[in-house]
Design a protein around this nucleic acid. Structure first.
Lengths: 347, 347
DNA sequence: ATGAAAGCGCTAACAA
DNA sequence: TTGTTAGCGCTTTCAT
């Protein structure tokens, strides 16, 4: 066998096969026309020694690591795992791996991973985190390694961005509700300053306006993009006696919090009030009633990010100009939305 | 500035500072007593060139990568992200990074990552996936790099294992239900062959037996550790008219499926029937009623796995004997369990 | 078709 | 205190 402490090196293989290291390298890479005899000897030695070429040494020599860095806002946020999986699939398919960093909503950690990935000489980076300082965005944009930003939109920085069409998505949501006859509605916003917050609420309002609904008929509530935020905001709304027939939420987690608050207050969904979310996380189809939502195409975005990176690598320096790609969202109708009741909230 | 194509190397720094590369290396590593003058010159050059030591070159030279591989069954399964985050936190704290692989329930992919991580010369591996062949387990156990297995129990292989006390956990669940007066109960099992399935159902039955409940009062149903499995199994149970006052489920996702089926059939939880899950995923507190469950200490396990790896590294070859560490589970009482009704399922 | 040798960027003896 | 030098394991000219 092999494993006597240190792993076998290419020299061990060469010696055992009675050839030079160059030949071993060539045979393994499928370069040139080695004599069958030679190739066989090499392969035999490889098997006998359980030889695995060191990716470390190869990276040093080749000046590429075949690795992409991927930084996400928070791997515990159910939005990200699907993106990560898709990116990894796409990368694996072309011989790349993903080095993952979860910033856990902390800017310092995001910076830590930025540094880490630079140190590790990743061949490209995907930054799917909005918790990044302007300074870091500029640093990234100026970096010689290809960078793709996902679901964040650094202002005034020339960098490639792939993002869901948040505005268009929430327009879809509003149109869906309006189509069901809703006119007096509430909108629970996400956290202040979060990238998607502004475009989403704007899209919602724009579609309402287009439908002839006065802006004053839309009441804005403040959530925090978390379960508790949605729960609290909607509980207060109900207790304050405001009568709306539909509630749109910044994201699914907020909407699920809203569902719970409505349930607690004895408001039936969708009979009395309709609820719509955004993102389409797994739990959206688990809750009762299951949540109508506008889905982000997470897998698609993960795949696109990797493909873009590969294209940039392929094109070399300055080959591909930074662009912003807006991925459409798609309406996912489930049980939590229905026709507007003719009376008020509590018939 | 710096970024003129290739990143600065230690030689660039040395030249600019007017010293040798060895001195740069020492100053940066804080070794020896460099003259202030020298140190200053080096640091100045480092800053000027935005020099970042190449982790690749360092790894080659040091024969360690400061990286741990972590393979999970499926990053999209809500159980894993918390484990991953905790492992990463623990690793980062001591200068290590985590190279993540999500096997997506596919044995081939698991093997792919095993190979990948061996090629990358990770300093240790955490395998949190039960979808690994016996052959791979043996290969891992024989590997010179430290390995810790999480939540899987390879048979007859000397390897370090950290696992939740599944048996004890489900005993807690049974005791909780029995304490509430339940005697006729159902248990929805997980997928056949899944590691935790057997111990969990055994623990449940053992506690029931200890409470004097005849085995025939416990009806076993077959799920698949997914939402649909729980939903289907429980829907059939209700329609077949079997009257139980409590349903224990292999995991939370199954239990959430069960909740939905009960709701659809008009069975009230916990008034008519109590439901208890296992794992404690985030969605357990989002559903209505929120789910009583037995929590796995995922973060704790992630942390322990890294600590163990570090200890093994520290101890050197054969320093620490393989052991199986069983982490206790903890009962998390929420809304889905309550006193057994005096009548049958439908009062 | 194959081998010798240089070198990727770093660290660690060993010298001075 | 600092410099010189020899690799770590691989790929790739350039010879042969």
């Amino acid at each position: 066998m092999s494993d006597r402490g240190a792993p076998a090196t290419i020299r061990d293989v060469a010696r055992r096969a009675g050839v030079s290291t160059a030949t071993v390298s060539r045979v393994l890479a499928g370069i040139g026309n080695p004599r069958t005899e030679t190739a066989d000897a090499v392969m035999a030695a490889v098997v006998a020694l359980d030889y695995r070429p060191s990716a470390v040494a190869r990276s040093l020599r080749m000046r590429r690591t075949n690795t992409f860095g991927l930084i996400v806002t928070d791997i515990q946020n159910p939005f990200f795992p699907e993106l990560v999986q898709a990116a990894d699939d796409a990368a694996r398919g072309v011989g790349y791996s993903i080095l993952l960093g979860s910033a856990a909503y902390d800017e310092h950690r995001a910076v830590h991973y930025l540094d880490l990935m630079a140190d590790r000489r990743v061949d490209g980076m995907i930054v799917a985190s909005s918790r990044v300082s302007d300074e870091s965005w500029r640093w990234l944009a100026a970096s010689p390694v290809p960078v793709v930003v996902v679901n964040a939109e650094p202002a005034n920085v020339p960098i490639t961005v792939i993002t869901s069409d948040n505005r268009g998505g929430m327009q879809l949501a509003a149109e869906h509700l309006v189509g069901l006859g809703h006119r007096r509605m509430a909108y629970v916003r996400g956290e202040e300053g979060i990238t998607a917050d502004q475009p989403r609420v704007e899209g919602f309002r724009a579609a309402c306006r287009a439908a002839g609904i006065p802006a004053s008929d839309i009441v804005e509530l403040h959530g925090n993009a978390q379960f508790e935020g949605g729960e609290r905001a909607v509980a207060e709304l109900v207790r304050s006696g405001l009568d709306v027939t539909a509630i749109a939420c910044h994201n699914d987690i907020t909407a699920i919090g809203a569902l719970r608050a409505l349930r607690a207050e004895g408001v039936r969904v969708p009979h009395d009030v309709s609820v719509i979310g955004c993102d389409d996380i797994a739990a959206a189809s688990w809750v009762v009633p299951s949540l109508t939502t506008v889905a982000q195409q997470k897998a698609e975005m993960g795949r696109m990010a990797v493909e873009r990176l590969l294209a940039m690598l392929d094109a070399g320096v300055g080959g591909i100009a930074p662009a912003t790609i807006r991925v459409p969202m798609v309406l996912q109708v489930r049980e939590s939305t229905g026709p507007a009741p003719t009376g008020g909230v509590r018939p």
